[in-house]
Nucleic acid binder design. Structure first.
Length: 111
DNA sequence: TCACTGACCGTGG
DNA sequence: ACCACGGCCAGTG
């Protein structure tokens, strides 16, 4: 705490940076992020990192990150269980049963 | 100090 | 096609 950190949890910051790079109206999944980071990090770690993303600056659009099934797995972790779906719908993404429609079409992947 | 869990994904039988 | 297991980091009890 105090002062901004250093090198520890460096891979976590990479996750934040990648999620912030996601354009509006697009979504990605944990595996792709972890894989692109190319470090010792798996999807589980990415999800855990996002758990602390609420303290990251600037805020990380975690609502654009879903699981491989295109399901809003982390919606329950938001301020409200419907906030994630509401944000995605606001970006033009249709969601049915907590699942993104045409997930592949809205899927975004880092270069 | 040790052990388990966590917003997951891929592979094997 | 379905079920079970391993992997990786950090935080909490």
């Amino acid at each position: 705490m105090s002062t901004i950190d250093e090198k520890s949890t460096n891979w976590i910051e990479k996750v934040y940076a990648m999620v912030r790079q996601i354009p509006r109206g697009k979504v990605t999944n944990y595996g792709t992020i972890a894989d692109h980071i190319g470090v010792k990090a798996t999807s589980r770690m990415v999800g855990w990192a996002m758990n602390a993303s609420h303290a990251a600056t600037p805020k990380v659009p975690a609502h654009r990150v879903v699981n491989r099934n295109g399901v809003l797995t982390g919606k329950h972790h938001f301020a409200t269980p419907t906030l994630m779906q509401d944000l995605l719908e606001a970006e033009g993404i249709q969601i049915i049963d907590d699942k993104i429609v045409d997930f592949k079409k809205h899927f975004w992947q880092p270069s």
